[in-house]
Design a protein around this nucleic acid. Structure first.
Lengths: 190, 190
DNA sequence: TCACTGATGTCGGTGACTGTCGTCAGCGTA
DNA sequence: TACGCTGACGACAGTCACCGACATCAGTGA
């Protein structure tokens, strides 16, 4: 007989999503989440640095993939072309089957400023990772940072559209449209 | 005889900056800050929603000015030209005399992830405000959001350079350079 | 058989934040 | 002059996020 059920981290993450969605983030204590899967508050904080972080587990994996595709772009590709490669990877990471889950998660985040704040931090880390990967490709500063910001902005705007109600296009198609809109913006300066 | 010294909020903000800088943000309690200016912890939280917010008082004023300049751009100006107007306003808000203070403040923020998180939230609010102002000018979505992101990115990157050591150019000059670098990036896609 | 490991529980503490109520100088008003 | 009101603050108690230290014990390998 096993002493504890396996997969504590996954069970905690699933329970947190459910409770945050039903009761609200602030109305749910870390102890509530832990107790709902037969664990203690202390164990919750062993797996997650804080109460918000539980919604962002797996983010590291996504970032790794996103950034890896910058490095995987052909050597002769320009900075923005490499960014475009990474956007393709992002679209693969979020297939349509994942949309309902992403929508629920996003609704929780949107309902709480603190969670929105954490989401922005994750996007900032994504930007930094991407800028570093571009620098590794030989892109100088500040172009590397600017291209990374551009890529993450396109991803962010496209993702928000993707999880929006009534939206049915796949993420990749939305990204392409957003990127086109962005390019149409620049020439109008000066 | 006055019952209390006036300017409680300003005294608290100044004391917080000083203590966060000397002892570190985490090593300073809200009670420490309050006590150092003869007030109680409770009063600290009457003026500031949380311990981080004290470093971002005045941000509203900046945002107001930034956004107002989008609206003040000539009616025939394009989205990116209106953004460029706002960037000019930002440069006026941060004259060179302000640089030492900004540098100190930034060093505190950079030393703490939680403060960095809050800074990102402020920049996101700036982006939202700017997007709304652009929409008021008749710019459609997602162009309004994209132009706003672009503007805030340029401001953010330029500001970071401005507070960097050895940097002596005024903010406006840096902004112009960054904007030029950004524009040079786009044509390379597709 | 036994030492050891690793995941978890237990306990106690700190500090961020909040609701509520009491206090009192200054001010207007009769 | 007396009186009542208001606004800024203090006092107090409570909740909860988070953390350090130590105990527990099933499983594992020698």
């Amino acid at each position: 007989m096993v002493r504890w059920e396996p997969g504590a981290q996954e069970r905690l993450a699933a329970a947190a999503l459910e409770l945050y969605a039903s009761r609200g983030f602030e109305q749910t204590t870390a102890a509530d989440v832990a107790q709902s899967v037969g664990l203690t508050e202390r164990t919750f904080f062993r797996y997650f640095a804080d109460k918000r972080e539980v919604l962002f587990a797996g983010q590291d994996h996504f970032q790794q993939l996103f950034v890896a595709n910058v490095a995987a772009a052909p050597p002769e590709a320009s900075a923005m072309e490499a960014v475009s490669f990474a956007l393709d990877a992002a679209a693969v990471f979020f297939p349509d089957e994942r949309r309902p889950h992403s929508r629920l998660r996003q609704s929780i985040i949107d309902a709480n400023p603190g969670l929105h704040e954490r989401e922005l931090l994750k996007l900032a880390r994504l930007t930094e990772g991407m800028a570093a990967a571009l620098r590794d490709r030989g892109v100088p500063e500040p172009q590397a940072t600017l291209a990374a910001h551009t890529g993450v902005t396109v991803f962010g705007v496209a993702f928000r559209l993707w999880v929006g109600e009534h939206e049915e296009r796949p993420l990749g198609a939305i990204e392409a449209d957003v990127l086109r809109d962005l390019q149409a913006l620049s020439p109008s300066v000066r």
